[in-house]
Amino acid sequence: MEQARLLEAIIETAIDGIITIDNRGNIESLNPAALKLFGYTIEEVKGKNIKMLMPEPDKSGHDGYIERYQTTREKRIIGKGREVRGLRKNGTTFPFRLAVSEVQYDDRIIYTGFIHDLSKEKEAEERLREYAAELEELVEERTKSLKKTVKALSAAKEEVSLSLEKEKELNQMKSRFVSMASHEFRTPLSSVQLSASLIEKYAHPFENESITKHVGKIKNAVGNLTTILNDFLSLERLEAGKVEPAFSFFDLVKLSEEVTEEMQLIAKQNQNIIYQHTGLTSMVNLDQNLIRNCMINLISNSIKYSGENTFIEFNTEINDHECTVTVRDNGIGIPESDQKHLFQPFFRANNIGNIPGTGLGLNIVRRYVSLMDGSLYFESVINKETTFKLSFRR
């Protein structure tokens, strides 16, 4: 009795449906899970044929199924379970897996069916199929888009290649032109410079102020043109990657004194370049030509953008950590709105008026400093002062 009550409790509380029928297919019992699945009460189904719970075509073929099941071979195969559909009281159908077993009970045979609802699994499978279809459609669209993009990129690559080839040709032409122009202009400029010096020499005994004045204008004009040529030639060499720093040890103080003396000759009236060095050593490992060019460019700018009767401070410092070169003037300054563009090629501040220049000098200085792994800083206050500082790690 105890075992019978336990078995009954197990059947009553089972998650899957359990149904029993006799050998004619009439329903003897359904557990609560099965009744819930089909939507009937036990009174509505007990004693009725199992076919009432089956939709077509399973309903018409059920008698043949029972007969086939009674053969040994079908017991081995069908008894393992098969997927069928059930018919609810409300007319709807649902999928379930049915496993049937034969039970000997009170000198007769009954059949027990175990019903596992597959509705949620089928819904999940359907969602997966829908997702897979959507994914395939998306992949197909993306593939078409990718092919289109690849085709466009290929066309763009070809166009860029042609543009690069044309640009390469133009750069070669520009390089040849700059080299040619530099050579062709330098020769007559040298002749003009020499002739102006000779005129000044031969006119000296006459002490004619007009001759001295105009000879000075010729020299200044030649100097400006020479500076322009030098700037263009330097930029062309930088753009072509022809400038490689040649590091060597040299006396920075000696170089700075030579530059100071040279630049003082072209300074304005009563414009004085004051050079000072700080440090116990004067030897550095840099490119002497590049650092000299930087010094001349910065001091030249200070001369151009400062008035007469002014001082230009030119300082060098060497300590254990770095070497610095500083040029400070009391000139027109750089407007704050222009400072962010200061190192762009051909840029000139809006307060320079008719002061000559190419707008290339500071760009060249910055690139020379970068080639020597240095840093360039500046500060400027309009109509007060401007300071440029080059810094190199030791």
Rank of each mutant, 00 (worst) to 15 (best):
F185V: 02
K174R: 13
S175V: 01
L198H: 12
H204V: 05
H204E: 15
Q193R: 09
A181I: 12
S175P: 02
L198Q: 11
R176Q: 09
S175H: 11
S175D: 07
P205S: 14
F206V: 13
A181V: 11
K174Y: 05
L198V: 14
L170N: 04
S182K: 07
M173Q: 11
L194R: 04
A196R: 03
H204F: 07
H204D: 12
E167R: 09
P188Q: 06
F206T: 07
H183V: 01
A181K: 03
K168G: 14
R186S: 13
Q172A: 11
S182V: 04
A196Q: 04
M173G: 04
E167G: 04
L194K: 05
N171R: 15
E167N: 13
E167P: 02
K201I: 05
L170C: 00
H183Y: 01
E200W: 00
H204C: 05
K174A: 11
T187W: 08
A203Y: 06
K166N: 14
L189A: 01
N171D: 09
F177N: 11
A181F: 07
E200V: 01
K201P: 04
S190I: 02
K201L: 15
F177E: 08
E200Y: 04
L198C: 08
K166I: 12
V178Q: 02
I199Q: 07
A196E: 03
V192T: 13
L194M: 04
S197W: 09
S191K: 10
I199V: 15
K174D: 07
I199M: 09
L198A: 11
Y202V: 15
S179N: 10
H183L: 05
